[in-house]
Simulated scan of single mutants.
Amino acid sequence: MTGHRGRNSHRLVCAGALAALLFSSVGCGRLEEFSDPPASAPVEGDETPSLAVNESAVALLPDSVAARHTLRVAIPTNEPPTQFYSEGTRYMTGTNPDIARLIGKALNLDVDIKVVNFDSIIPGIAAGRYDTTVSSMTPTTKRMAAMDFVDYMQVGNAIVVAKGGEPVTKDTLCGKKVGVLTGSYQLTVNIPAYEQECATDGKPPIQIGQFQDTRQAISALTSGRQDAVLADSPILAYATANNPALELSDTFDDTPVAVGVTKEPALVDAVSAALDSVIASDAYREVLGKYGSESAMITHARVNAAQ
Score class of each variant (00 low, 15 high):
41 A>I: 07
41 A>G: 06
41 A>M: 05
41 A>S: 12
42 P>V: 06
42 P>E: 01
44 E>W: 13
45 G>I: 13
46 D>R: 09
48 T>S: 11
51 L>T: 11
52 A>P: 10
52 A>I: 10
54 N>K: 01
57 A>F: 07
57 A>C: 12
59 A>C: 05
61 L>T: 07
64 S>K: 05
64 S>V: 11
65 V>G: 01
65 V>Y: 00
66 A>Y: 00
66 A>P: 00
67 A>M: 03
68 R>T: 13
69 H>V: 12
70 T>D: 03
70 T>F: 02
71 L>I: 14
73 V>F: 00
74 A>M: 04
78 N>K: 05
81 P>L: 13
82 T>A: 07
82 T>P: 05
83 Q>P: 11
84 F>I: 14
87 E>W: 06
88 G>L: 06
88 G>I: 12
89 T>S: 14
89 T>L: 04
91 Y>S: 10
95 T>S: 12
97 P>H: 07
98 D>Y: 07
100 A>T: 11
100 A>Q: 06
101 R>F: 09
104 G>F: 07
105 K>W: 06
106 A>K: 01
107 L>V: 12
107 L>D: 03
107 L>F: 08
108 N>L: 00
109 L>D: 09
109 L>K: 03
110 D>Q: 11
110 D>K: 12
110 D>M: 05
111 V>F: 07
111 V>R: 02
112 D>I: 10
112 D>T: 12
113 I>T: 12
114 K>Q: 15
114 K>H: 15
115 V>G: 03
115 V>P: 05
115 V>K: 06
116 V>H: 01
117 N>A: 15
117 N>T: 15
121 I>D: 00
121 I>G: 00
121 I>W: 00
121 I>Y: 00
122 I>L: 14
122 I>F: 09
123 P>Q: 02
123 P>I: 04
124 G>R: 03
125 I>H: 01
126 A>D: 14
126 A>F: 05
128 G>A: 08
129 R>K: 15
129 R>I: 15
130 Y>G: 09
130 Y>Q: 08
132 T>G: 02
132 T>I: 15
133 T>K: 00
134 V>N: 00
137 M>H: 11
138 T>A: 11
139 P>N: 10
141 T>I: 10
142 K>M: 08
142 K>S: 15
143 R>D: 10
145 A>P: 02
146 A>I: 04
148 D>C: 08
148 D>K: 03
149 F>E: 00
151 D>Y: 08
151 D>M: 03
152 Y>D: 03
152 Y>G: 04
154 Q>P: 04
154 Q>H: 12
155 V>M: 08
155 V>I: 11
158 A>C: 11
162 A>Q: 10
162 A>H: 13
163 K>S: 15
164 G>P: 02
165 G>T: 05
166 E>G: 12
167 P>S: 07
168 V>G: 02
169 T>F: 04
170 K>M: 07
171 D>H: 11
171 D>N: 11
173 L>T: 14
174 C>G: 09
174 C>H: 04
175 G>A: 12
